[in-house]
Design a binder for these strands. Structure first.
Lengths: 221, 221
DNA sequence: TCCCGTCTTGTTGTATACAACAGATAGGCG
DNA sequence: CGCCTATCTGTTGTATACAACAAGACGGGA
């Protein structure tokens, strides 16, 4: 492993922890505690937190502390709207630009999804689904777009996790993926764009339904 | 003016300076010099620079220094591709969601553009053009999209400045704006989307032509 | 003359100490 | 008994000092 600064390593570690749900949205990130855990002073921790704040993973409330970003329904809807557009764009570009190697990678990821689906392994499907989408981003051959899509994907991941076990979601997701792969393979940019837009929009609607339910629970509690 | 931390104020100041071209792309930002200029130590400056780095305005080269981001042709093309998509999305949403007040603001901005065009005032047109686009972003009624579009717009601004005086660009830009306003006013989402996509793509092509010429000059120099 | 090794210098990255501010709490006054 | 105020505490924001590293310069050897 290459040498990198404490701040950089810490940033990656915290980002991972947040994305993977080990720090649920709303959690307060205490610099002092983190300092003890990672054996360093507040300075690099502060830097890491600020970098995360800049990418929208955490929110710094002046004089109050730093908290893992907790998105309300409308904020979630907004982000899914943009995510749908970015993914659709990736699909449109990928349909025209994908290389044969990238196409085979995409198909491999898709096959892995099928395997997890048939094994009824939601966590595994979730992981392979992430790979599938990243293949798509890269196939757009637009590094900036790939970065932005990846960043937004990461921000939304903790919420996506919530709907892992929704009934039949895995199966419908897989069917949607089939359409996406088919459109890209035939080079049909418009179809790929539409298929991805629908795919993400459906996720967005499901998520917001779910979040709405959760928030109702919180309110009544 | 409300009280904010040195780092925040510094961030805004530097961002402005970069966007407005007072620090051209490639400029080295020396923490020590900035410290003298703004009467503060390296710590808040470091923070400001890191926040700018996170939004892509500057690039930190480890052990070498911090430099204002200098985009090559391909990087520029990539960003304009994404910018076109985001603006097109703003237009599509705005066509459906714009309020009458926002529409009148947009028309006011458009009228200001016409004034500057008739006065042959390129700098003024440039400024009003920015207002026009920001009106559009806000009219999308998607705060996240507005933020992202604004950020990307700012990153591209130093390059946009380069083509201020291209012959007839102001006039064609204005004509394109007319189509955009018309589409939004009639609520034609598809037309607004297409008009904006074209508008930005044209800019992107012109810019990259220009940058290509500039880089050729640099090479031969 | 050219190349390699060492040293110097300037930079960034980190730790620690300090100051300033906001919120909470307790005490006094009406 | 309630409200206002003053202090107090815990936090963040900033300054400074130090350490580590890397690029460049210089000198010695081949």
């Amino acid at each position: 492993m290459i040498k990198m600064s404490h701040a950089q390593r810490l940033r990656d570690l915290l980002e991972d922890a947040i994305v993977e749900g080990r720090f649920p949205p709303g959690t307060k990130l205490d610099p002092e505690a983190l300092g003890r855990e990672y054996q360093c002073s507040r300075t690099p921790i502060r830097e890491a937190l600020q970098q995360l704040a800049a990418s929208g993973m955490v929110k710094v409330v002046p004089k109050r502390g730093t908290f893992v970003t907790q998105l309300g329904i409308s904020e979630l809807v907004e982000r899914f709207e943009v995510m749908a557009e970015l993914e659709a764009m990736c699909g449109r570009l990928a349909a025209r630009r994908i290389t044969s190697q990238e196409l085979s990678e995409l198909k491999t990821a898709h096959a892995a999804c099928r395997e997890r689906l048939e094994a009824d392994d939601a966590n595994g499907y979730y992981y392979e689904n992430g790979c599938f989408h990243h293949c798509l981003y890269r196939a757009s051959h637009n590094a900036f777009l790939t970065e932005e899509a990846t960043r937004l994907h990461a921000i939304l991941k903790p919420y996506r996790r919530l709907q892992l076990h929704v009934r039949h979601r895995m199966h419908s997701s897989f069917v949607e993926h089939e359409a996406i792969v088919a459109a890209i393979e035939t080079g049909d940019a418009a179809a790929a764009e539409q298929a991805l837009k629908d795919h993400v929009h459906i996720q967005g609607e499901r998520f917001t339904d779910l979040v709405a339910n959760i928030e109702r629970l919180h309110e009544s509690a």
